[in-house]
Design a protein around this nucleic acid. Structure first.
Length: 229
DNA sequence: CCAGACGTTGTT
DNA sequence: GTCTGG
DNA sequence: CCAGACGTTGTT
DNA sequence: GTCTGG
């Protein structure tokens, strides 16, 4: 799955070139957590732009802008069936700029954080869906959820689910609300699985920690080595 | 029909 | 255990 | 995702 | 809003 990620060294130019549009700046962050406002690229009324959206989907029909359940992830396999997601999957897809994400490997009583990224620390984009919540007397709330799928082979030992990382060739199609429905599952299945990883320190656990040191490789003992102490 | 949920992950 | 806040 | 709180009444 | 359960 995906519950923390980074935009530390993303290339805004890569998004601008691939999408043929001008975007606002993307701040460098190394510990993006659910519930925060983060940069998201979406196409609305024929224009593609970067907006600040809340991570954790608040559907437009929610009575309250702060409902109990705000999904941070949405399963790719069932997107077109779930009442909360199906309309958004058809018409409100988004790209989430990132250059890595964190996954905790649970071994016995230990939780070892790993930083997962593409070769060469390439800038990438998660596939997501977004929505727009509005009541007369309240400000508009934009929110999003990151789509997940089965984990790629190299990182499956860490966790069995991972966020969908879209190759650049699909970015424009993914954002286009008029793209034929049948191509959506094809795009999702053609996601990147050439991920690599490193163990990192526990600094990432605390949301208030933020900096390049969170992504630094830190050797960690495995659980079975602890067992003999 | 109305009332109530609408999600994921992981664990059992 | 479960919910909230970040 | 993880960390940290989880409550009321009354007083300042 | 739309779906599910009763």
């Amino acid at each position: 799955m995906c519950g923390r990620y980074s935009t530390g060294k993303v290339s805004k130019k890569k998004y601008e070139k691939t999408l043929n549009t001008k975007l606002e700046n993307i701040s460098s962050r190394y510990n993006i957590a659910p519930g925060q406002k983060n940069p998201v690229i979406s196409t609305h009324k024929n224009s593609t732009s970067l907006s600040s959206m809340n991570w954790g989907l608040v559907p437009n029909w929610a009575k309250d802008p702060n409902p109990k359940i705000k999904p941070i992830n949405a399963r790719a396999e069932t997107l077109s069936e779930k009442p909360s997601f199906k309309d958004l999957f058809l018409k409100q897809r988004c790209l989430i700029p990132a250059d890595g994400y964190y996954e905790w490997q649970v071994t016995g009583t230990n939780k070892i954080p790993h930083y997962i990224h593409l070769p060469n620390m390439s800038t990438f984009a998660f596939a997501g869906i977004w929505d727009h919540w509005k009541r007369d007397d309240c400000n508009t709330l934009l929110s999003y959820s990151i789509i997940t799928t089965e984990a790629a082979e190299p990182i499956r030992f860490i966790h069995h689910r991972m966020p969908v990382i879209l190759p650049e060739k699909h970015w424009q199609k993914w954002l286009d609300p008029s793209v034929p429905v049948h191509s959506l599952p094809e795009i999702l299945q053609d996601c990147r699985n050439d991920c690599t990883y490193r163990t990192v320190s526990d600094l990432v656990n605390k949301v208030s920690n933020d900096g390049p040191e969170l992504t630094a490789a830190v050797p960690r003992k495995k659980q079975d080595e602890f067992d003999f102490i």
